[in-house]
Design a binder for these strands. Sequence first.
DNA 1: CTTGACCCTAAAGTATACTACAGGGGTTAC
DNA 2: GTAACCCCTGTAGTATACTTTAGGGTCAAG
Lengths: 139, 139
Amino acid sequence: MLNIGDVARQGGVSVETLRYYEQQGLIETPDRDANGYRKYAPEVVRHIQFIKRAQDVGFTLRGIGDLLSLKADPGASCRDVRDRALGKLSEIEEKIDVLSRMRDVLSTWTNACPSTGPVSACPILDALEARKGPANADR
Amino acid sequence: MLNIGDVARQGGVSVETLRYYEQQGLIETPDRDANGYRKYAPEVVRHIQFIKRAQDVGFTLRGIGDLLSLKADPGASCRDVRDRALGKLSEIEEKIDVLSRMRDVLSTWTNACPSTGPVSACPILDALEARKGPANADR
DNA sequence: CTTGACCCTAAAGTATACTACAGGGGTTAC
DNA sequence: GTAACCCCTGTAGTATACTTTAGGGTCAAG
């Protein structure tokens, strides 16, 4: 059995993060020692890595909680998980699209800037003030 | 002269947002009427659109404040503005890279999923639990 | 003269994922 | 027995860009 500090070290997170995950329902409430210390089975480290990997591919803690519910539900199907992943995938693609548009506009503007002369003749500031802005997708 | 509500309508923002911008130093403190109402010159609408366009290409309000200072500074050069734009551009490219990696991983996973069968045999959940995660760039 | 639309301030709330702090007890080695 | 380190709870703070709430004046129309 592990103390919270052991789990934190092995899982690569802080003890505060572990307590936070517990509070958020992402990890089971652990048993307590006589002194009140949380005692963890070694398997919990794997569980934390699951959370971290899911974060790495863009899931929020809320989404991860959802994934964990599916994982624990014998009635759930693989399709349910796949649906969550596809949903996240399109969210990410949407973000990439927005960012790509920003990049294109900024790139155009920086290329148009001679980078010499005073700000009074800056094409970037001009572009920002112009009647026509970039085609803004959202916000 | 315009009341705050007029500016809000013409600028496409809420009156609360205008007061917030003022508080944040993004728009000049307007003169007040005898009744205490803010009175704006019509030019302020253009100013607000500057802010909105800068947001559209990824600048934070802090960065926009910086841009506005350059704009107002006769000693500033076009290069200064360009530097801010290039900095923002690389930030955005970095974000795109991170998101692209997430997309690739999710895409691989969703393709590997037969989308039939129980979660107990789900390749996506397996991937999330595996020893090897995706090569995570940051976080 | 009242109703509805508008204006004011200051403070608190929202979302996300933690981090930090205050205040206090337990454990281990010397 | 005391220093160094671990654990506990609960609350507040962080960043960003607003939005909401509370409580209260102002103005134009009918």
